[in-house]
Design a protein around this nucleic acid. Sequence first.
DNA 1: GCCAACGTTGGC
DNA 2: GCCAACGTTGGC
Length: 134
Amino acid sequence: MAHWLIKSEPSAYSWDQMMADKKADWTGVRNYQAANNMKAMQVGDICLFYHSNEGKEIVGQVEVVKTYHPDPTDEKGKFGMVTVGKPKPFKQTLTLAAIKEHATLQNMSFVKQSRLSVSPVTEKEYAQICKICN
DNA sequence: GCCAACGTTGGC
DNA sequence: GCCAACGTTGGC
């Protein structure tokens, strides 16, 4: 099973909304690298849910419930999306500032490539985050 | 197929 | 609000 980190601006789609919806199509990704990461996702993979711009913290995790399929919001039909569900809030959120101070986490892919909206998370990083947040 | 110009993202 | 990073577009 793989782990990922997906970003969303709370003003566009927030964690509260995710909790209310229980399930969401991850539409709107228009970047090939991010799309490739989504293509690699399997049902059951865990995605950390990160609030960008406002909050700048990991707030919880969701699970992939449907693999890569066409994104109806893409008029050109080039990009796809995955569907995520089963949102689980963390007892403690994890801010970007804290991540940058943490030896195991400061090299996370999304920290280095801040513009990438879907990025891989290693086993080690995920285990560490679970330890901090639960 | 290169590269300059431009647009967007996101941290600060 | 600024700016760095980086993806995309379009002229040649």
